[in-house]
């Protein structure tokens, strides 16, 4: 999906379109949920499992 154009693009614009920040957001969401869980909020097992498989899918984005 790449192309050969050399139009300059800002780093911020690059990161917005990149899956790595999404993975970071997902990890942060998992961390927040973990803290809430430690605080007594009930978290059912499928919630972290769903976040995990989404992380696994994003991790393979480099082979797109």
């Amino acid at each position: 999906m790449g192309d050969l154009s050399t139009t300059p693009v800002s780093p911020a614009r690059r990161w917005v379109a990149d899956p790595l920040p999404l993975l970071g957001l997902l990890a942060a969401a998992g961390g927040v949920l973990g803290v809430l869980h430690l605080g007594g909020v009930a978290v059912p097992w499928p919630v972290p499992a769903l976040l995990a498989v989404v992380a696994a899918g994003l991790a393979l984005s480099g082979s797109t």
Binding site: V9, R13, A17, D18, S61
Partner: peptide
């Protein structure tokens, strides 16, 4: 944007 794949 152009160069997306290379950046990734």
């Amino acid at each position: 944007r152009p160069g997306w794949q290379q950046f990734l």
